[in-house]
Design a protein around this nucleic acid. Sequence first.
DNA 1: CATTAGCGATCACGATAGCTAATCAGTACC
DNA 2: GGTACTGATTAGCTATCGTGATCGCTAATG
Lengths: 301, 301
Amino acid sequence: MRHLIALDAVATTGTFGRAAVLLGYTQSAISQQIASFERLVGAPLFDRPGGPRPVTLTPLGERLLEHARVLLDRVEATSRDLDEFQHGATGRLRIGTFESISTGLLPQIVRQLLSERPQLDIELVEAFEDDKLVDWLRAGTTDVSFFIGNNGEPGEFETVHLKMDPYVVVARADSVGDGPIGADDLVGVPLVGEHEGSCHKRVNEGLLAMGVQPRYVFRSRGNGAVLAMVRAGMGMAVMARMAIDRDDPELAIRDLDPPITPRDVRLAWRAGRTLSPVAQRLVDIALEVCDQPQPSTALAS
Amino acid sequence: MRHLIALDAVATTGTFGRAAVLLGYTQSAISQQIASFERLVGAPLFDRPGGPRPVTLTPLGERLLEHARVLLDRVEATSRDLDEFQHGATGRLRIGTFESISTGLLPQIVRQLLSERPQLDIELVEAFEDDKLVDWLRAGTTDVSFFIGNNGEPGEFETVHLKMDPYVVVARADSVGDGPIGADDLVGVPLVGEHEGSCHKRVNEGLLAMGVQPRYVFRSRGNGAVLAMVRAGMGMAVMARMAIDRDDPELAIRDLDPPITPRDVRLAWRAGRTLSPVAQRLVDIALEVCDQPQPSTALAS
DNA sequence: CATTAGCGATCACGATAGCTAATCAGTACC
DNA sequence: GGTACTGATTAGCTATCGTGATCGCTAATG
């Protein structure tokens, strides 16, 4: 390595002495470096004419110099890229997420992250079930992942709590009064909701706990479709608050009474694995956006 | 450099100890190397879970490893290319030459050289005047050059004598008898020959020294054209023996009497400059082809 | 629950490599 | 023939890098 730099310097300056000054060494050091390099390759790299004439590269030296410059450039590029990476300016970030989070939380976070670091390569991987997210995170398919509560083997993941996301009732604005919706209001009422999946399971269990046997008249994987059906008058929906992305005067959003246990929205990564600078920043931004204190050391799962 | 190798080995084996075995070090050495590398980049490269579990790369380490592998590959490639270059298997060789030499001498030399080293990149640069060849060789446009006699500043070039190339008369076979051609045979005879140039100058001076005032009826830069004109009966030609590339029953080749001083064909290169392996081999082959002894140390110009 | 095995970190120590400083030796130029 | 500019060489110091032994940690074992 030092050899390559010395070779370049001598070839450029034409003189051992000037190369030494350039590199902050003494002439002796350069002489020894070149000599050692020549011993290494087994042949002279410079013709030394003697006297006050500049040294010149041998054909071998010339050939080696070409390679040396390529290598030095590469090293330089590596150093620059690593710096950028460490400062979080570049990097890839694969995020595991649910649709509701992609709708109600991620956009703010991603917008902030991208405004700070426009060159980032962000990849979202959406799942309908917790297990998928766990598998992906475990396998390294995702770098960080949103979780509902804690998942995986104990100690396998590290997580931070972002916010509690309540389940609410969504109905046409003209079909409900003010105030929370009780169990009575839901019995026998036609419902629209999600297809099978972790989210739906939680809603379903919650309703059953309330004593309501839900009657679904439409199911979809897309929250947008569900809301559209509510808007169209197909029925009410019980869904995570976060999945409703915009204020819609046609729709009324009401609390449940008694409420279904809200979702514990967390951000998770593999325990004991260093987060990349961008992932670290993502966590911080997520905490900011959710108004959570930033634990200096993230809580264990 | 060592750092990169260690990084690669640890990442591959998953363990400091196995990496050490792989590289012929002790575990302690690897541990210190990685630690020093981490100090250099300012952040951990591996997550060490502790206990009998393998270490894993941090995101930074992964990124660095990609660069490291590219660099190591390049170093490997450099080493291979240099080996080949030193053995003369690869390399570029730019040869300064005259047309007559390109015709009568070079083909044998180049054929031999290429049969030994098929991958060579040989470039011929043809000149019509000595000065051009001198300039090119001085400037490094050519690596080696054919010279007629010695040229350039004294001590500027190193040369070896290849052969003496006599000047001969070429005529239609049916237009001359046996035996050498004397001055009387040439007086007033129509001649074909070269255009201005170093070769032609020597012929012209030779003829004048013989007492012959040459009468040119055709001149060309191409020896082939000259010979064709002789064959066509335009006249005789006085030219270097070497410029006649093949036996042609239509043509008779006769000595001059008195002869013009033959050309001293030499191979030259810049004095004090190491020859590339292929150039060195070219010199040797040229000497072989010309039946010259090979001086272990080439004669000074 | 104590034991064991496998892992990396650390320390002291010796060898080596790499630098400086001073000097030597060759060559061109005045 | 001196002078000035080269690179080479030598001795000596120092920082680096390797080894070997040891320590501390954790998962797996019985």
